[in-house]
Design a binder for these strands. Structure first.
Lengths: 236, 236
DNA sequence: CGCGGCCTTGAGTTTACTCAAGGGAGGTGG
DNA sequence: CCACCTCCCTTGAGTAAACTCAAGGCCGCG
């Protein structure tokens, strides 16, 4: 990871140049805590296409995505990476492996040039043992993750593909103002695989929704015409 | 929750009679920390069939199942509760809602008489702010939960019903000694719904596995005849 | 013995997948 | 500027996995 991959280099605590958006990752922080994290953090840059880590790799540090886009999922030799999740910075990239067994449970690959920071677990534990309020922030972040995963699991188990797509579209507007126009930020095949369906099925469902007048799709731009109806479908 | 449901009564900090198995829930604890938790904990008893909480109910406290069996999932008026998960004490019953938004994300129903303890979130936060090592134990527990959910999500997205069943059977023996005999602890319909399939499909798959000589099933007793082959199926 | 749950089995149907072919957008080189 | 290539999305046809509905059997219980 170090001498082998020259372009994926650690820049120890690059505080002058790099502002890590801790509040976006952890919520509001005391500035002393933010500085303590900065002191631990190691920034890394990776070019588009780089595989950041693989399942079963040692995971000695939490990894946060500061900027760029990363697909997490399952690497298969012929097919490339099947995305179970696509992250846009800032977001946590590896949150649980380092806590649990020090192994990653995922493959991750950069879809754009990306900037990550790593928090080595051992020093982090020591820090949290001294700064309990900061520890609570990590618990909160983990709990949000649990919550998110539970609702995805629920959807996958009980909703058909159409309902999942409708729910996904609705969710894209959560905490967003009026405008009902959505610019898709990922390849449709990645959206499909995050929703647990094939690209063909996604395509057909998009067509079906627009034929029924619920949405209008043009390339990567999607407009919601009937939010009410869409929410109805998402229930089922 | 108090005056309304007389048989579901809080017995404040019943330390003399009730030994809460904190180590099973949180890992090894300093005895002072265990005592502090005991001081917060409220024990509750509920008879078989009682619905413990519902989705969107306020979740002011973490809930741990001390003893008994609880199904968590999705309540539907005609069908009863579809189990997304069945818990056997000791285990965490409501771990994330209280941290995140103070709402439950699940319905939960007792399948036997059960004993639970609740840790009110506000005092707990205050305690963890004073006892950082205890806070780390909660982070660990949350991270384990994330890890578990991620792997379930992965299975649901990428494995067919047969592979999921094979993987589930293998998982039942994780951290268990030699004997390859399994006593099913839940109704088959609950096992099926946890695996994201119908009872009919589970039944057919069980038959198919035993026809192929991989397992032998007799009522609620299951014997693994070909662990190797079973693990092979679980991969796919 | 009769009743109520639960599991099993069968038949038919639906949903979503696979495979294969076609079309559009963007980039590169002649 | 156009030809060409590549990558992705779309569409169609056929298939397979899992679901629904309905009937039958087993077991424990009153």
């Amino acid at each position: 990871m170090n001498a082998i991959a020259p372009s994926y280099e650690a820049t120890q605590a690059a505080r002058p140049t790099l502002q890590v958006p801790w509040p976006a990752l952890l919520g509001p922080l005391a500035s002393a805590d933010a500085q303590a994290l900065d002191a631990l953090a190691q920034a890394r840059y990776a070019p588009e296409g780089r595989r950041l880590f693989s399942r079963c790799d040692a995971a000695p540090a939490l990894v946060a995505l500061v900027d760029g886009q990363v697909a997490c999922g399952w690497w298969q030799a012929e097919r490339g990476l099947t995305a179970e999740r696509v992250l846009h910075g800032p977001a946590w990239l590896a949150m649980c492996g380092p806590w649990v067994d020090g192994r990653h449970g995922n493959d991750a690959q950069a879809q754009t040039a990306v900037l990550t920071v790593e928090l080595p677990m051992e020093p982090l534990r020591a820090l949290l043992a001294r700064q309990p309020l900061l520890g609570l922030r990590f618990s909160d972040a983990l709990a949000r993750e649990v919550s998110r995963l539970e609702s995805r699991l629920h959807e996958l188990m009980h909703k058909d593909a159409g309902a999942r797509l409708a729910a996904w579209i609705c969710a894209q507007f959560a905490g967003r103002p009026q405008p009902s126009v959505l610019r898709l930020a990922e390849r449709k095949r990645d959206i499909a695989s995050q929703l647990g369906m094939t690209p063909e099925t996604l395509s057909r469902l998009m067509r079906s929704l627009s034929d029924r007048g619920l949405i209008a799709v043009s390339g990567y731009t999607l407009r919601v015409l009937d939010p009410q109806g869409l929410r109805g479908l998402a229930e089922a």
